[in-house]
């Protein structure tokens, strides 16, 4: 039965790392994708605007 435990540990140690790297890369690409810049800037400004009531 020890085999199963070793296997899980091995999996966690190797694929876990790949998973993490891939995910980090994905996030960076998404945030720094040039065409995303505009909506992000707009979003950042949006909360500063007047916000008296919901939009109709």
């Amino acid at each position: 039965m020890n085999f199963e435990h070793e296997m899980l540990v091995g999996f966690a140690k190797s694929y876990g790392l790949f998973y993490l790297l891939a995910l980090s890369l994905l996030v960076l690409v998404y945030t720094y994708w040039p065409s995303n810049k505009k909506p992000f800037d707009r979003a950042a400004r949006s909360i500063i605007d007047d916000e008296d009531r919901p939009w109709e």
């Binding site: 899980l8 966690a12 694929y15 876990g16 998973y19 995910l23």
Partner: peptide, 20 residues
Amino acid sequence: IVASIGGFVEIAPLFTIDET
């Protein structure tokens, strides 16, 4: 998904830990 995979990968081996 993102949050639980991390937890799962780390915790899963512990459910077989009684073997160790």
